[in-house]
């Protein structure tokens, strides 16, 4: 075993998080520090991209490269970074509102394309930054500041969505379990392909003080006999009953990533004909006489 040249503290930036006391995202941030340190990821070769929301402030607290981009747009920006510099470790982070509501379309295409990035979705089942309106993950019937008579909509399970959309690695974590979350982050970052980690992260301000306790009580580990390569079996751990929240790796498969496909196309194109020289290009585009 090699000793990591970095400690979790080396990934801490000078910015102090402005999250509410008790927010689950503090634990997620600690897990990010630990995972990056354990995997020996060089800070200058790591990029953390977010959208907008409470959890999307995370890149500012990590001493790597980072983008606090536009609302819902973390995944296309992360895709651009990964395609331009495939050797970098690219993390996309943000909330359930950012990723499932306003940015939902990008979630589909990043998963489908199998872009080699790790996407950590901090899921508090509410819009936190705008102070407590229902998100697509808010359970049906819940009263929020935008659903005063109860949420009339059916909620989305991000893991179920990711599996359906073609993500090649899908897991659920609970931020209250820092060690477990860290281990899942390490697997996500190491996965070759689009890795989606849904981190259930309580919002003490808008989902109540009891949310953490309730989540802790209902978390269950994925059964040891679960076949991670079985998509149908993985879907059994999505849209679970109210009293159950299965944490761990639900789905894990290997298929070519977007970068793999692009490199293959490039190699094929070069193989068919060598790239034209400068003189040939000038001749083709020369004005007609």
């Amino acid at each position: 075993m090699t000793c990591s040249p970095y400690s979790p503290n080396d990934y801490k930036s000078d910015l102090k998080p402005v999250w509410c006391p008790g927010c689950g995202d503090f634990a997620v941030l600690n897990s990010v520090y630990r995972a990056l340190a354990d995997l020996h990821r060089e800070p200058h070769e790591t990029v953390v991209v977010s959208g907008i929301g409470c959890s999307s402030r995370l890149p500012g607290y990590v001493d790597t490269y980072g983008f606090n981009s536009l609302h819902g747009r973390a995944l296309p920006i992360a895709t651009g970074v990964k395609l331009a510099r495939p050797n970098l470790t690219v993390l996309a982070v943000g909330g359930d509102g950012d990723g499932i509501a306003i940015g939902g379309n990008h979630f589909m295409h990043a998963a489908r394309r199998n872009v080699d990035i790790a996407y950590f979705m901090m899921d508090n089942e509410i819009y936190g930054l705008t102070k407590g309106q229902a998100a697509p993950t808010t359970p049906s019937g819940d009263k929020t500041k935008s659903t005063l008579y109860g949420n009339p909509e059916v909620s989305v399970d991000p893991c179920g969505l990711a599996i359906s959309l073609g993500a090649s690695w899908v897991a659920r974590a609970f931020s209250g379990d820092v060690k477990g979350t860290t281990e899942l982050m390490k697997l996500a970052i190491s996965h070759h392909g689009f890795a989606f980690l849904n981190i259930i992260s309580p919002c003490v301000t808008w989902r109540g003080d009891d949310q953490t306790k309730e989540l802790r009580a209902k978390q269950r580990a994925v059964p040891a006999e679960h076949d991670r390569s079985d998509r149908t079996a993985a879907l059994r751990f999505t849209n679970e009953d109210d009293d159950r929240m299965t944490v761990g790796v639900l789905y894990d498969t290997q298929r070519p990533t977007l970068v793999d496909e692009m490199l293959e196309i490039r190699d094929k194109a070069i193989g068919i004909a060598p790239p034209p020289g400068r003189e040939e290009i000038l001749r083709v585009f020369a004005p007609a006489r």
Binding site: I102, Y127, L129, T130, K131, Q133, S146
Partner: peptide, 9 residues
């Protein structure tokens, strides 16, 4: 249609 954003929420 209603969608929140500070400061109009």
């Amino acid at each position: 249609g209603a969608y929140p954003i500070t400061p109009q929420t």
